[in-house]
């Protein structure tokens, strides 16, 4: 985590430019820290330390304040995401409908190595509890079997993908 993550050079430049522009639009004001962190995370996927340092300098904020803010809010990630993400809703309705068991099942599932598994609180679909959001798409009335199928589907797709490549 010593450097700001780079992909291709051009994309890197572009991301940096977008971030710079976003900061300029807010007049490099410290008040916009949270907005800027959102933008940075959208661009880079997470918030590595060098990126935080850069933001701190630009917004003229003490680095400890920037890290303090970045770690206060749960949506900010200091570590990169895995290939896939699953968010198990543990709002009241989903908890009552067995969300915890789904979460545990997912965490312990041998096929979930590629998945960042997290819990969330009420995604607004309580009537269809329990809810799991897989890669941004909500699955309704989830059962252990449905999740199993979803993981397998992805696994299969992943392996056919590599097979085709050879």
């Amino acid at each position: 985590m010593d450097e700001i993550p780079q992909t291709a050079g051009a994309a890197h430049d572009e991301r940096e430019q977008i971030l710079d522009r976003a900061m300029a639009r807010h007049h490099n004001s410290g008040d916009a820290l949270i907005e800027i962190l959102h933008t940075a995370q959208q661009l880079y996927g997470y918030l590595p330390a060098p990126l935080l340092k850069k933001i701190a300098r630009r917004l003229m904020l003490p680095p400890s304040r920037v890290l303090g803010v970045a770690t206060f809010y749960h949506l900010f990630r200091l570590e990169p995401l895995r290939k896939h993400s699953a968010v198990v809703c543990l709002g009241t309705a989903c908890y009552e409908a067995g969300g915890t068991e789904l979460l545990e099942g997912l965490r312990q599932h041998p096929g979930s190595g590629d998945w960042s598994v997290a819990s969330g609180r009420c995604v607004g679909s309580c009537g269809l509890a329990p809810i799991v959001i897989c890669d941004g798409r909500a699955m309704a009335r989830v059962t252990a079997d449905k999740l199993e199928a979803r993981l397998r589907e992805d696994h299969d797709r992943g392996s056919t993908g590599t097979d085709a490549g050879h």
């Binding site: 008040d31 916009a32 949270i34 907005e35 959102h38 803010v69 206060f72």
Partner: peptide
């Protein structure tokens, strides 16, 4: 950015100002 306590009005205002 994912903090229930920011629904509390003074915390919400702090958050708008870019703070914890």
């Amino acid at each position: 950015a994912g903090a229930y306590v920011c629904g509390e009005e003074t915390a919400l205002l702090a958050s708008i100002e870019g703070r914890r």
